[in-house]
């Protein structure tokens, strides 16, 4: 059993079916680097029936809010979130792409008003496609595709 390769957790969250090599990004995205109170187990490139290979992140005593789940969907659209209580699976759900993103990314169009110096606005995007992921800036209407989203995202964290 693939699950046995890494420790089970007593309670917390297991993020499964993360695309291979993306677990570290999810780790940073959740701010786990600076969170001294949780212990985290990360598995990278483990075999998976559904995905061939995948990453897994197990986080003790930590639960995700909807914004965090939405952010994970951007980087790992196939991920499942498993809530563990007392070593047993209490709830399991696929991440869902949000319809709207606010403040997470900055537009990549250098002539977009949101990238102007000191304007008090954050990037706002509408998700217009999920596979492949495509988002559109609410201001300048520039469309950003998957790889770009990831690049912009990782640059931030």
């Amino acid at each position: 059993m693939e699950q046995m390769k890494i420790n089970r957790i007593r309670q917390g969250t297991v993020i499964d079916h993360i695309g291979a090599g993306k677990a570290l990004a999810v780790f940073h995205l959740l701010g786990l680097k600076n969170d001294q109170t949780t212990s985290v187990t990360m598995a990278i490139r483990v075999p998976s029936r559904r995905m061939r290979i995948k990453d897994i992140l197990k986080i003790e005593n930590r639960y995700l809010d909807p914004t965090e789940t939405a952010m994970i969907a951007l980087i790992a659209p196939q991920a499942t979130i498993n809530i563990i209580t007392n070593y047993t699976l209490e709830k399991k759900e696929r991440v869902k792409l949000p319809t709207h993103l606010e403040g997470l990314l900055r537009c990549e169009n250098p002539n977009c008003i949101t990238t102007a110096l000191r304007e008090p606005v954050q990037g706002k995007f509408t998700v217009i496609g999920d596979s492949p992921l495509r988002i559109q800036c609410d201001y300048c209407l520039t469309i950003i595709a998957t790889e770009e989203v990831e690049r912009l995202f990782l640059r931030k964290i």
């Binding site: 169009n109 002539n111 977009c112 008003i113 609410d138 201001y139 300048c140 209407l141 520039t142």
Partner: peptide, 13 residues
């Protein structure tokens, strides 16, 4: 009228 895309949207906000 503004040289940057999205300026009117920002103005409206």
């Amino acid at each position: 009228r503004h040289p940057r895309e999205g300026a009117a949207q920002l103005a409206a906000e």
